[in-house]
């Protein structure tokens, strides 16, 4: 490679490095604002502002969902297994909402620490499974979560039902 080309290559690489450093610093400075939501731990630790709209993300605690019989009002608890935040929501929940599901709640914290939700979004994970496989697991007394954990450790493969 001759000297001119070498110099041009250095300029080009320098440009990319400079932009990368700038962007990294910007993202580092804005890191809290880029997070889509606060975790229950952060909310209980009073890192989240009260009286202003925030997002909270976590898992719907098993056995905590309480549907009002006469209206659409639902109350449940969001947890990250370190802290718990009670949520009250009046509206239509997404299809994937269930106990044990990851969700993001948009709402305001009231004085008692309850999150008054205006919108509930369901998060889903990157694991997909045919219904037949889930049924087979169910028969064997395994939940999809237990099964995934075992599979991640390399102990299990998918049951026969998934063969096309």
């Amino acid at each position: 490679m001759n000297a001119v080309r070498k110099r041009r290559l250095m300029i080009v690489l320098g440009l990319v490095a400079l932009v990368a450093v700038t962007v990294t610093l910007m993202l580092f400075a804005l890191r809290q604002n880029i997070n889509l939501f606060y975790s229950p731990e952060q909310i209980v630790g009073q890192e989240a502002p009260t009286g202003r709209q925030i997002r909270a993300g976590g898992i719907v605690e098993k056995g905590s969902v309480d549907r009002n019989q006469d209206s659409l009002v639902v109350t449940f608890t969001v947890t990250d297994f370190k802290a718990r935040v009670p949520v009250r929501f009046d509206g239509i929940l997404p299809d994937l909402f269930r106990e044990g599901q990851g969700i993001v709640v948009i709402g305001t914290l009231d004085a008692s620490g309850t999150l008054d939700a205006s919108q509930v979004l369901a998060k889903h994970d990157e694991n997909y499974m045919p219904k037949e496989v889930a049924d087979v697991l169910d028969k064997e007394g395994l939940s999809p979560e237990d099964y995934r954990a075992a599979r991640a450790e390399g102990k299990l493969s998918y049951p026969e039902a998934d063969r096309p």
């Binding site: 889509l36 993300g57 993001v104 998060k123 096309p164």
Partner: peptide
């Protein structure tokens, strides 16, 4: 960051997070 979007289903280093038929 915390995102609503889930993490990748496919990667070069680990088994895909879904069965073959998918």
């Amino acid at each position: 960051w915390n995102t609503l979007h889930q993490t990748a289903s496919f990667s070069l280093t680990k088994a895909p997070s879904m069965p073959e038929s998918m």
